[in-house]
């Protein structure tokens, strides 16, 4: 068993909790190849279940928007530009996304003087660990077979097994339209999530290549990759703020 993703967590895409299996879980077969489990637990009330899936779908859409925005901003980013303006806003308690990106890339004494240098090494280390963790999840999500389980009111109503090459086998405990629709939506949500996770890596790498080109140092790409992922996740968090969610291109 590879990773278990549970809808409602905040580990991956601020949408799925991620954990390693402690024991064999439900469908586990000892000698079976690794299989990633995606669990979607929904309440009995159809309205509440629909709201959970709708919110998750909106989060996926927001993640895609954030990726567009982050890619654009990384293309426009120039770490050599002064950071004073970014820090000139008196009521800003934390550095903005571009400032942190600049700090991660440059590890620059000039940045230290603005008060965030003291946490840089930890920040950079955590960015590296985050990249490591995230790519591991994507490896599991994309490279292994997947199983999507949908429970309504605690009852397992459907399981879909999805091979790496896209073969799909579904076992239904119900053919009631209201319930089958929930599982279909859960499956679509899982597929969309995987696509966004993979796209996140693509945008990370693409952004890192561009950022590295602005750095005249031998380890530029290694420095830029975790910085790019952190930047993307910061932009996603920015977009989730209600006051900015609609205005960012």
């Amino acid at each position: 068993m590879a990773t278990i993703f549970q809808l409602g967590g905040a580990d991956a895409l601020d949408l799925w909790g991620a954990s390693a299996p402690a024991t064999i879980v439900s469908f586990g077969v000892n000698d079976a190849p690794p299989e990633t489990l995606w669990r979607v637990d929904l309440p009995d009330a159809a309205d509440a279940a629909a709201a959970i899936l709708a919110r998750a779908g909106a989060d996926i859409a927001a993640s895609n928007t954030a990726l567009d925005d982050a890619a654009r901003r990384m293309r426009a980013f120039d770490p050599r530009l002064a950071v004073v303006e970014s820090f000139g806003v008196g009521d800003r308690a934390t550095p903005d996304s571009e400032s942190e990106l600049r700090a991660l890339l440059l590890d620059d004494p000039a940045v230290v003087s603005f008060g965030i240098g003291a946490v840089m090494s930890d920040t950079w280390q955590s960015a590296v660990e985050r990249f490591e963790q995230f790519t591991a999840w994507v490896r599991d999500a994309v490279g292994a077979s997947s199983r999507v389980e949908t429970r309504i009111g605690g009852h397992l109503i459907a399981v879909t097994r999805l091979s790496v090459t896209g073969d799909l086998r579904t076992v239904w405990a119900t053919v009631r339209a209201s319930e089958t629709a929930q599982h279909e939506r859960a499956l679509a949500l899982m597929l969309a999530s995987r696509a966004v996770m993979l796209r996140t890596v693509v945008v990370t790498l693409g952004g890192a290549v561009g950022l590295a080109a602005t750095l005249a140092r031998p380890d530029a790409i290694i420095r830029a990759v975790p910085a790019a992922l952190r930047f993307i996740e910061t932009v996603r968090a920015e977009l989730r703020k209600p006051e900015t969610a609609r205005e960012v291109r």
Binding site: T165, R169, W172
Partner: peptide, 22 residues
Amino acid sequence: ATELTVETYVVPTGTPITPDIE
């Protein structure tokens, strides 16, 4: 990926879905 297979199973009424039941 020379072909794409999609299969749909339904467990008998009242039967829980168990591992590898398909």
